[in-house]
Structure formats: structure tokens, C-alpha cells
Simulated scan of single mutants.
Amino acid sequence: MRRVPCGCGGEGDIWLVLLDLVVCGMFLRNVDHGARSGAWTCREAPQLYHVRQIDAGQGKVVARTSSNYVYFLSGSSWYRLGSTTLKHVSVGPAGIWGVDTSNRVHKYVAGNFVQSSGLSMQQVDAGGDGQIVGITPSSYSTYCLRSSLALAYRAGSLSWSSLSRTMRYYSCGPLYGCWGVDSRSQVYVTQRITPTSCGATGWTQVPGLTMRMVEVGTDGNVFGVTANGSVYQRVGISHARPQGTAWVSVSMCMPISHLSYDLGQLWVVTNSGMLLQCSH
């Protein structure tokens, strides 16, 4: 793996990141410490500039930059994974998966991403209980790859099982099911996808805010990003009430374009491509 200490790029983008650093620093200094005691406190994550997408799961963190290369965080350093460029990457119990700009599905195997054949996907998510879920381009149909196939896959064709809902963004967790956002930015949750068969329970619409994306953590925590870049956490989630009870605002110093959550750490990407790491 190639170590990348900063991921630096064009001067114009660097100035945007530096501006974000200044604004975020002023924000954190001006917020009363007592008021933040029960909230999220953010700091600059290990440096990887021009981040466009982030995913965290099972203690691992992967990110995609504007160059479409994928990086893996080890300690405080980022390492490039292989030479394949991807537009979306996800990490979870079934490994590291992604899709390229031609909507071909890849899995990270033996030091590089291996391209599969079969259905095209615009996004895949590896955060479930061993299964992989994906969304096809154009029709936005949802599909599931059974855990036995996902875990054993090394090369060749993938056999996907259809799910009964269209989505624009899709994320799963091993505890309380999968969450998705449809073409109207409405949020839905399904209580359970059986990883061995890809059988799913019915979908429930989550009332309240509309979202551009939602992400589910390994422990069942759910976070969403609205169209204007605001961040919210869904609270009150349980086996009896997988849709939760309310959206709670998570204050951020800048508009956010993407996020992910794992093991108490909230990873957020600002519109300029700066990466923040937040915790309670």
C-alpha cells in the first residue's frame, strides 16, 4: 500500500480547505464548553485532502478523494488501496467493496480491487451482517448479494437478489436493518434483511426531515445529511421501533457533503473536501 501523508492537490482547493480550517476553528472556540458537554466535538482528521466520500465499519475507515483513488486509514496515516479508481467505496463484514465510474462492482482482494461481472451498480454498501446491498443506475432498483456469495467472492459473476423498493442511497447495519433515501429524499427503513437469503421485511417511512443520504453504524446509530448540508442523528432506535423517534441536529462548522459513523466516531466531509473526526 502506498502511504499518502497529505493528499495535496491544486492550490485553489487547498485554499478552500484552509478556509474551512479557519472557520471551523473559530466555531469551536466560540461554542461554550458547557454547552458542548453532551454534544459532538470535532477536530481535523488525519490529513487527506480533497475527500469526496467516507465509509467506516468494524473499526476500519476508507475514503475516496476527488481523484477517485481509495485510501485506508492506519493509525494517523492514509494508504492507497491498489490502482483502481472508484466513485464509491464501502467497508464492512464482507470486506471492502466499491463501484467505478462505469458502474462496475469491485471487491478488494489480495492487494487490489477485482472487477466483477453481472449487474451494474451506482452504489454498494457492505455495512450489513455479511450481505452486500446495491442500487442500479437509471432505474435505482435495490438488490442484495447473499452473505455466502459476498464473503467467498474472489472473481467472476455476481448473482444479485432483487429487493422491492427503489432508492437513491442505501446503507445497512447488522443490528436494526437497512436505511435508504428515495428519489423524493424521503427516508425509509426495513427492520431486517436476512443475510443468508436476502429476504427482507417491509419498508417503513421515517417521518420528519428529508435527507440527501443516510448512514447506519455497526451499533445501529443512524445519521443523515440534508440537501443544504446539515447533519442530523436519528434517536430512539430499537428492535421494537427501528425507525426511531426523532431527528436531532448535530452542529457542524461548515456544510457537509458526506459522512459515516463507527465505534463512537463520526467522520464528516465538508463541501471543500476537508475531513473531520467527531466524538462525544
Results as ranks from 00 to 15, higher is better:
Leu163Pro: 00
Pro93Asn: 12
Asp125Val: 11
Ser183Gly: 12
Gly98Ser: 14
Lys87Asn: 15
Val189Ser: 11
Tyr169Ser: 13
Thr190Cys: 06
Gln123Met: 14
Tyr143Leu: 06
Val51Glu: 00
Ala94Lys: 10
Pro46Ile: 01
Gly127Pro: 02
Ser148Val: 14
Ala126Leu: 04
Trp160Gly: 02
Ser147Pro: 01
Leu158Asp: 03
Val89Ile: 15
Leu158Lys: 10
Pro174Ala: 07
Gln47Trp: 06
Arg165Gly: 00
Ser157Arg: 11
Gly98Cys: 14
Asn112Ile: 09
Gln115Glu: 11
Tyr108Asn: 08
Gln53Glu: 14
Thr142Gln: 06
Ser185Gly: 04
Leu145Asp: 07
Gly75Tyr: 09
Val70Ser: 07
Ser185Glu: 11
Trp160Glu: 04
Leu86Glu: 04
Ser161Ala: 15
Phe72Ile: 03
Thr142Phe: 10
Gly118Asp: 05
Val61Asn: 02
Arg80Tyr: 05
Leu119Gly: 12
Asp55Leu: 01
Ser102Ala: 13
Leu158Phe: 03
Tyr153Asp: 04
Pro137Asn: 07
Trp97Met: 13
Gln115Lys: 10
Val114Ala: 01
Thr85Trp: 08
Arg154Cys: 05
Val114Ile: 03
Thr136His: 02
Trp97Gly: 11
Ile135His: 00
Val109Met: 07
Val133Trp: 00
Ser120Pro: 01
Ser162Ile: 07
Val61His: 04
Leu151Lys: 14
Gln58Arg: 12
Ser159Pro: 03
Tyr153Thr: 00
Gly156Asn: 07
Asn103Tyr: 09
Gly82Gln: 12
Tyr170Asn: 04
Asn103Gln: 09
Leu86Asp: 02
Ile96Asp: 02
Arg184Gln: 15
Ala155Phe: 07
Trp78Lys: 06
Gly134Ile: 04
Ser66Met: 11
